[in-house]
Computed example of a mutant assay.
Amino acid sequence: MAVLKFRIYLEEDDAVYRDIVIKHTQHFIDLHFAILKAYEFDQKHQATFFRSNDNWQRGREISFEKYDKAYVADPLLMAETTIGSEIRDTNQKFIYLYDFAKNWTFLIELINVSKEENAKLNYPAISRIEGIGPQQYGTKSLLGDKFADIEEKYDLSEASDGFGEEGEEGESDADEFGSEESTEEEF
């Protein structure tokens, strides 16, 4: 059974991508959910694939469902269309559009075809993650919630610039050592 490896790029930044391996007999709906999982997006919005060519032109549409919009030709449905049935050449490309309001666009490229299945993998599977993916809603710091925990643990909010007042600790050091000499060398 053929296993296909797709590289899914974020349209704006080709340094950010995810590789997903999937069986050719699986459906586009499986790839749809794998992409959302790989980029940590929710499953609340409309989505569609387009078969594409080397120039990233949109061809036949493979949609999650038939939406209330004008179609040149009725779309194929993700749940009914196997991935293998839409592969036309060895470097097949697709465009994946998610959340029509935000217009998240991903470029999908077939990068490998293998005849060997990995018995340890549950297909579809994410085989590689490169770059920090976008946040679906707004912006979020790279550290996310972890930074809030660090800030609370070390109480970073009090010394916002990270420096104390000059001489704060120096007075107690001088008393401890019994002299007022500088103890710089010890540090």
Rank of each mutant, 00 (worst) to 15 (best):
74 D>V: 15
76 L>S: 04
78 M>V: 02
80 E>R: 09
81 T>P: 01
82 T>K: 07
82 T>Q: 05
84 G>I: 00
86 E>H: 01
86 E>N: 00
87 I>C: 01
87 I>N: 00
88 R>E: 14
90 T>Y: 15
90 T>W: 15
93 K>Q: 05
94 F>P: 00
95 I>H: 03
96 Y>A: 10
97 L>V: 14
98 Y>F: 04
99 D>Y: 00
101 A>E: 10
102 K>L: 09
104 W>Q: 11
105 T>S: 08
106 F>A: 05
108 I>D: 07
110 L>W: 06
112 N>G: 01
113 V>M: 06
113 V>D: 07
114 S>H: 09
116 E>K: 13
117 E>C: 08
117 E>Y: 04
119 A>R: 06
120 K>W: 08
120 K>A: 15
121 L>C: 02
122 N>T: 12
122 N>A: 07
124 P>Q: 07
128 R>I: 14
129 I>C: 04
131 G>V: 14
133 G>M: 07
135 Q>E: 13
135 Q>I: 15
137 Y>M: 07
139 T>M: 14
140 K>H: 05
141 S>V: 08
141 S>P: 08
142 L>H: 15
143 L>A: 11
150 I>N: 07
151 E>I: 04
151 E>M: 10
152 E>Y: 08
153 K>V: 01
154 Y>A: 06
156 L>D: 02
158 E>H: 08
158 E>T: 15
161 D>E: 04
161 D>T: 09
163 F>C: 06
165 E>G: 12
167 G>D: 03
168 E>D: 12
169 E>A: 14
169 E>I: 11
170 G>A: 14
170 G>E: 15
171 E>W: 02
174 A>P: 00
174 A>F: 05
176 E>H: 10
176 E>I: 14
177 F>N: 02
178 G>L: 13
179 S>W: 07
179 S>C: 13
182 S>F: 08
183 T>S: 15
183 T>L: 14
183 T>E: 12
185 E>Q: 03
